Amino acid sequence: MTNRERFGRQCTLLGLRAPYSLDAGAEYLGILVDPRDVAKAVRGPKNDGLPLRKVAALLGTHDGVVASLIAAGHLASYRAVNSVNRCPQTLVAPQEIKRFKATYVSLHELAKKRRLYIGTMKSKLDAAGIQPAFDPKEVGATFYLRRTIGGLRLNRR
């Protein structure tokens, strides 16, 4: 197979048209293609889910906590093929993140909103008899049900 035939076949496989025709026996040093055309031909379908790193940023925690929440069944996830590198990855649906944030609040977030140290916030919650929603050792962070924190006054005093 000649270079000309190979070039024509590669363009056909990618769904591209050669920008010019090559004369028989002509040699070339490179091929000029539009990267957007190549990206369209190579990329798979886009996924709606968010990767674990983005989920961790949205929840204000780190990757390990998100992985633990998924493993413990507190955060629903699914596996899908990455549209760019075609490797399987774990994704979380945006609706699941909204549900989780509406149901749970982290100790870190509570302390930050009320401008308290985390230890002080934890002591106030313990004194009020409020228990974490999950075992902090299992998940790697402390989360509370928002409805149990709801009307509780835990100001700086």
Rank of each mutant, 00 (worst) to 15 (best):
4 R>S: 10
5 E>A: 14
6 R>V: 15
8 G>Y: 04
8 G>K: 15
8 G>C: 10
9 R>A: 15
9 R>L: 15
9 R>H: 10
11 C>K: 01
12 T>D: 12
12 T>N: 14
13 L>R: 13
13 L>V: 09
14 L>M: 15
14 L>E: 10
16 L>H: 04
16 L>K: 04
16 L>F: 03
18 A>R: 11
20 Y>V: 08
21 S>N: 08
22 L>E: 08
24 A>M: 04
24 A>C: 03
25 G>C: 01
27 E>R: 14
28 Y>I: 13
28 Y>M: 14
29 L>S: 11
30 G>D: 12
30 G>V: 05
31 I>V: 15
31 I>R: 13
32 L>C: 13
32 L>K: 14
34 D>E: 13
36 R>S: 14
38 V>K: 02
38 V>G: 04
40 K>G: 03
41 A>F: 04
46 K>W: 00
46 K>S: 12
48 D>F: 03
48 D>C: 05
49 G>Q: 08
50 L>I: 11
52 L>S: 05
54 K>G: 02
55 V>D: 11
59 L>F: 04
59 L>I: 06
64 G>N: 09
66 V>S: 06
67 A>H: 11
68 S>N: 15
70 I>Q: 06
71 A>M: 07
73 G>C: 10
74 H>R: 14
74 H>Q: 12
75 L>N: 00
79 R>I: 08
83 S>A: 12
84 V>N: 05
86 R>T: 03
86 R>A: 09
86 R>G: 00
86 R>V: 01
88 P>L: 02
89 Q>M: 13
90 T>K: 04
91 L>E: 02
95 Q>C: 06
96 E>C: 02
96 E>Q: 13
98 K>F: 12
99 R>G: 01
99 R>T: 14
106 S>L: 10
107 L>R: 00
109 E>M: 12
110 L>I: 05
112 K>H: 11
112 K>A: 15
112 K>C: 10
113 K>H: 10
114 R>T: 07
114 R>H: 12
116 L>K: 08
117 Y>W: 04
117 Y>N: 15
118 I>F: 00
118 I>K: 09
120 T>V: 12
122 K>Y: 08
123 S>P: 00
126 D>P: 00
126 D>I: 09
128 A>T: 06
130 I>N: 05
130 I>W: 09
131 Q>I: 07
132 P>W: 00
133 A>R: 07
133 A>P: 06
133 A>T: 05
136 P>Q: 09
137 K>Y: 00
137 K>A: 06
138 E>H: 03
141 A>T: 05
142 T>E: 05
142 T>D: 05
142 T>G: 04
142 T>Y: 01
143 F>R: 01
145 L>M: 04
146 R>V: 06
146 R>Y: 06
147 R>T: 14
148 T>N: 12
149 I>T: 04
149 I>A: 07
149 I>F: 08
151 G>T: 12
153 R>P: 07
155 N>Y: 11
155 N>M: 14
156 R>W: 03
156 R>E: 13
157 R>F: 09
157 R>H: 09
